[in-house]
Amino acid sequence: MTVSAADPLGGFAEYPDPLHAPCEGIYHAPSDQIYVEEIVNPGSNGNIGSLGVLDPVTGEIARYPLPVPGTTAGGAAFGPDGKLWFTYFGASSGVAFLDPDTRLFNAFPTPSPNSTPTDIWPGPDNAMYFTESIAQNLGRIDLTTHQITEVPIPGGGLNVPTTIIMPGAGAKMMFSAALANRIVEYDTATGEFTHHDVPTPGAVPQGLTLGADGAIWFSETLGAKIGRIDPISGDITEYPIATPEVPVPSMGPLVLGSDGNLWSANGGFTGGSTIGRFDTTTHHIDYFPLPRPGSGPCDIDSVAAATGKLVIGQTTGGAIAVAEIEELNAIK
C-alpha cells in the first residue's frame, strides 16, 4: 500500500511509487483516479513496464503489467473512445489500450516491427496519432477499425527523431523533432508537413503546446529557453528561462494551464526537481520546488492542467505529485 503526504508540501501532495520509475500521470476525471505509466515493473510474462491506477483518496496503486513481453510504455493519453491509449516498445513495437472499466488490454503491433513509437495523442478525425522514433514515421490508428497506417516523416534517417505529439490548430497535429532541432506540423486533412527550425543550435526542443494566443509554444531542454511560433508568419521568438535560482532548468514537457500560463516539468532524467510557471504576456518565469530533491519530473498532464490541476510523474524520485494551480498561484 502506498500513501500520500498527509499535508501538501509547498503546494504539492505526493503519492509514493518507489522502484517503478513513474514517468507520466494521466488524470481520469470521470473516476478522479490517476493512471500512472511505470517504466520499471518486470512481470511474469517477461515485460518491462506496467500501467498503474492511483486512488488519490487511499494512495493505493493497482498495477497492470503490459500485455506484450519485453516491452515498456511510451506516452499515454485517453482517446475519445474513453480508452487509455499508449505506445509500447522494446522487444516489439505497437500501440495498445487499457479499458478503464474492465482493466483489460488490447494491443496492436505497428507494421514496422522496430518502429519504437514514443508518444500518442487523439487527432481530430476519430484516430490516435503517434510518433515512431526509429522508423521515422507518423503513425495513425483508426478508433473504429483499429487499422494502423504509417506516413514517412520528411528528413529521413536520424534527422527527425520524434518525441512529444500534441494537437495543433485546426486539423493539424504537431510534434517535436528533438535532435533535428525543429518543431513539425502535420495537416491531417492534406497530409502536408511543415517544419519550423529552432534558431538556437542544439536546443533539443521537447515539450510543446498550443497557447491561448493560438501560437505554438515549446521548451528547449538544452537551450534554456521557451520558444513561440507565430501562427501566421511561422517566425520563432525565444525567451531565456534560466534564473539565479534555477540556472540549469532542463525544461521538458510544457502545458497550458487553466490560468493561461504555461507550466513545465523541469529536470527529467537529469535529476532536477522544479515546476515552472511562464507568463506568456510578461515572459516572466517562476519556479516551484517539488517536495523531494532530485525527483526528475518526467511529464505533466496537459488535460488535467486545463482543468486547474497539475499531475506530475517523478521518475527518479519515485512518486506522483499533484497540485492545484490556484493554490500554487497563491504562493507566489
Rank of each mutant, 00 (worst) to 15 (best):
S31D: 10
D301K: 03
L104F: 11
F86N: 05
G260Q: 10
G52Y: 00
S93A: 10
R140C: 13
L51Q: 04
F86H: 05
G11M: 01
A177W: 00
P30Q: 06
V255N: 01
H28S: 07
P67M: 07
A265E: 06
G257I: 00
N181H: 01
G207Y: 06
Y239G: 00
G25Q: 03
P30D: 04
E185C: 00
S92Q: 14
P247H: 11
G294M: 09
I148C: 09
E37L: 14
I320K: 03
T118P: 13
A189W: 13
G317A: 07
T72F: 13
D213Q: 13
L210R: 06
A76C: 07
D301Q: 09
A107K: 07
H196A: 12
L104V: 15
D99M: 07
G257C: 02
R228E: 11
D17S: 13
G294H: 09
A91V: 12
G82I: 12
D55A: 03
T315I: 14
P253V: 11
L84V: 15
T163G: 12
V36Q: 05
P18R: 02
R277A: 07
F97P: 06
S31I: 03
N106G: 09
F86P: 09
F269D: 09
P124G: 09
L254S: 01
G155L: 13
G70Y: 13
L210C: 10
C298W: 13
T280P: 15
P199Q: 05
V311H: 07
P42E: 15
P244F: 08
I312K: 02
V40Y: 10
E185D: 03
A127G: 05
E245H: 08
L143I: 05
R63C: 11
S115D: 14
G79F: 02
D235L: 10
D142A: 08
T274S: 12
I48K: 06
K309A: 02
T281M: 13
N114A: 14
D81L: 12
G74T: 14
A306K: 07
G79R: 05
P113Q: 04
L179T: 12
A127N: 08
H195Q: 12
G308L: 08
D99G: 15
P205Y: 03
H283V: 03
L66F: 04
S50D: 07
A96I: 06
F89N: 15
D55E: 01
D7H: 11
D230S: 04
N114K: 10
G223D: 09
T71Q: 15
I232Y: 04
Y239R: 01
G227A: 01
G155Y: 11
G139K: 00
F97Y: 15
Y239P: 00
T162R: 03
P201S: 08
T270F: 06
Q33I: 03
L138S: 04
I226D: 00
T144H: 08
I183F: 02
D99Q: 08
L256M: 09
G257S: 02
T71C: 13
R63G: 10
T163P: 05
Y287R: 04
G271C: 09
Q136P: 07
A242Y: 11
G156L: 10
L222E: 11
P297N: 03
I300T: 02
P122R: 08
V246Q: 01
E150L: 08
T116S: 12
F108W: 14
